[in-house]
């Protein structure tokens, strides 16, 4: 990764990039379903975390809350220092555009935009100038090895290439956290490996990465795995000795597990 993606890392890694505190979320689905029940989690800046859990465990809900797509019924969520609970649509849209980078399972590029336009999309909504957008997007595509595919549209790219475009897009606004939802779910094993290497690279260049997956093999790339079951955090598994502090107690800034 180049310098262009390193700014968050340079700010140091003391403050948490994401803080989730005692969050509860219910859905009305036939009956009242508790998706998350008193979950607390803190992701230090520069950390690489995987969230694992079976279907319906609440891991998608957690991702939606951190990603500012949804608001909790109770508890607080803050990303990059901005509170997302109890905010209006406009504020959360702002945060999604500037503090969060999404990488989806199905790539989710806009089919009619070229690679460089897709990468520049968050900057378009953040009112960047046209030339600045293009320069930034071209640099990011260069970083993920697609410098020669700037003006290709998604249908002209392979699955792996599309996911690389999606990763470049996630980094466009230099977000506080990159949220990857099953990023290897839709590509073959070899391409999946490439994608995971890219995510590793993001981490190495200082980005905070949160990866949601149900595949152990994928989760093992992270520094720690948060196991979610029935709307609660079941446990945290540390994979690297030197991993930054990750806390899941009621007190999000509290002691280690």
């Amino acid at each position: 990764m180049s310098q262009s993606t390193e700014s968050h890392a340079e700010r140091g890694s003391v403050s948490p990039a994401v803080t989730v505190s005692d969050v509860t979320k219910h859905y009305q689905l036939g009956g009242r379903v508790t998706a998350l029940d008193g979950v607390s989690l803190s992701l230090p800046e520069g950390s690489y975390t995987a969230v694992m859990g079976p279907s319906g465990s609440g891991k998608s809900t957690l991702l939606n809350l951190i990603g500012g797509l949804d608001t909790p019924d109770s508890g607080t969520v803050s990303v990059g220092g901005t509170r997302l609970d109890g905010t209006d649509d406009a504020t959360r849209a702002d945060v999604r555009g500037t503090e969060i980078g999404f990488v989806f399972q199905t790539f989710d590029l806009l089919p009619r935009l070229t690679a460089v336009q897709n990468v520049a999309l968050p900057l378009t909504f953040a009112d960047w100038g046209r030339a600045a957008r293009r320069d930034r997007a071209a640099a990011l595509l260069g970083d993920v090895g697609l410098g020669d595919r700037l003006d290709h549209r998604p249908p002209e790219l392979s699955g792996g290439q599309r996911q690389r475009v999606a990763i470049a897009r996630a980094l466009a606004a230099d977000p506080s956290v990159v949220l990857a939802d099953e990023p290897t779910g839709n590509v073959d094993t070899e391409t999946g490996g490439e994608v995971l290497s890219l995510l590793d690279g993001l981490h190495e260049s200082g980005n905070t990465v949160l990866l949601v997956t149900h595949a152990r093999r994928v989760a093992e790339r992270a520094q720690q795995i948060v196991h979610v079951r029935d709307g609660a955090i079941e446990g945290v598994e540390r994979l690297e000795g030197d991993a930054p502090t990750l806390s899941v107690a009621d007190d999000p800034t509290g002691g280690e597990n």
Partner: peptide
Amino acid sequence: TREIGIMKAVGAQNRD
């Protein structure tokens, strides 16, 4: 609809 979802996820405001 899905495209709208993507645009919103990457920061599009309702008015955009």
